[in-house]
Design a binder for these strands. Structure first.
Lengths: 205, 205
DNA sequence: TCGGCTATTGAACCAAAGTACAGTCCGCCG
DNA sequence: CGGCGGACTGTACTTTGGTTCAATAGCCGA
């Protein structure tokens, strides 16, 4: 499996090198150098601020290998657009080597690579369309793992409150707030209040 | 990576054996024999005519490993249902060993496995909806007040990243991240990263 | 009644976040 | 040209967040 990586600048990242030792990095004007025939994947980097259309049109003349987009700032909207434009996948430019290898494996076998968050969203939105389960059940799964008091603390913290503010609102000491937060982090396997916020507010991460 | 396979009858298929030589096959009553702790995957076979609810409830008491459903008669509807029930994936009972290895790889790393046809369908059917939604909730008012670089920092922090992680991703020092954050807080009249997360992720406080 | 869970709090500690006060380098614009 | 804003970095500092040792007290089911 041969890999060709396109970037505005011929800059090989360490993670790429590790995941694809035989990869060749090319500037976009060197598209015509790619041979056809052997199995391979095209990777194309979309840097911050670049227009996807420009990037895609730049490699328009390349042989028909599966295309994976490297996004400096990935978002579900970008992934969707890339897939609609015919790409086989889209992943973070700075993804870990193991992830890249996995992407290559899937895409190389004719599959599509979709990030976790988008996949969850797709599954969720279709489920809603089919009108089966309520979306609240999944959103509140974190709440079901916590005690009543912990849920109160979690909601306030996720809304942006400091420990002191939570303490004041609930008429307890800051120390107790910390104790509750510790229990919450433990139960939900979270690192800090930021991740709690993300979890509670249902962000796609 | 340890694999446990559940089936009504303890019948190990050749393809399973080849893909997962160390797998242990168990009848559904032996759920309690599974240890926790080591990394692993539960595979559970849904034979023709069996009710998914019965199968899933049978392994209800098992430790929390990712679950993959083996379907004798897979359909997109079944896959959707399995994912909704919390499974990490669903594939044909008689899938080729290479496919099984790939499923194991993805699921073992915390991913979801969705078959190609369903994935294509999901992408196609929800493209419009998703695009619209992301356009609506875009609410770039915060982004328009910030410089390009600050938007990058804001997105990463709002997603739950620490200063160190942001610094690593953007290849700058932690100090610079703090500088950007300071400017962001000033411009958006925010107090800390938590409030930033709330603002960026569009919570209705 | 006893063990387990929850709620509460304290002291002490370390790490992370954020601020204050600096500076350099670059491109743009009047 | 000189001023301005953005990106970037440094040292030193304060504040907040989170953890590790505790402890007390109430409730509930076995």
């Amino acid at each position: 499996m041969q890999h060709w990586i396109f970037d505005r600048e011929a800059e090989m990242l360490a993670s790429w090198q590790e995941a694809m030792p035989t990869a060749r990095i090319l500037s976009r004007s060197e598209v015509s150098n790619i041979p056809g025939g052997e199995p391979g994947i095209l990777w194309c980097r979309l840097r911050s601020g670049e227009a996807m259309d420009d990037v895609l049109s730049a490699i328009h003349g390349a042989p028909r290998y599966p295309l994976v987009l490297f996004c400096d700032e990935p978002s579900d909207a970008i992934v969707m657009k890339a897939l609609e434009a015919g790409a086989a996948g889209c992943c973070n430019t700075h993804a870990a080597p193991e992830v890249l290898r996995q992407v290559a494996l899937v895409v190389g076998n004719g599959g599509l690579w979709v990030g976790q968050s988008l996949l969850r969203q797709l599954v969720g939105s279709t489920a809603r369309t089919l009108g089966q389960r309520s979306r609240e059940e999944k959103r509140d799964d974190w709440a079901q793992l916590l005690s009543e008091r912990e849920v109160q603390v979690a909601r306030l913290v996720a809304g942006g409150a400091s420990n002191k503010e939570v303490a004041s609102q609930l008429s307890i000491t800051e120390r107790t707030v910390k104790a509750h937060l510790g229990a919450i982090f433990e139960k939900l396997s979270l690192r800090d209040r930021l991740q709690l916020s993300v979890r509670v507010n249902g962000l796609t991460v």
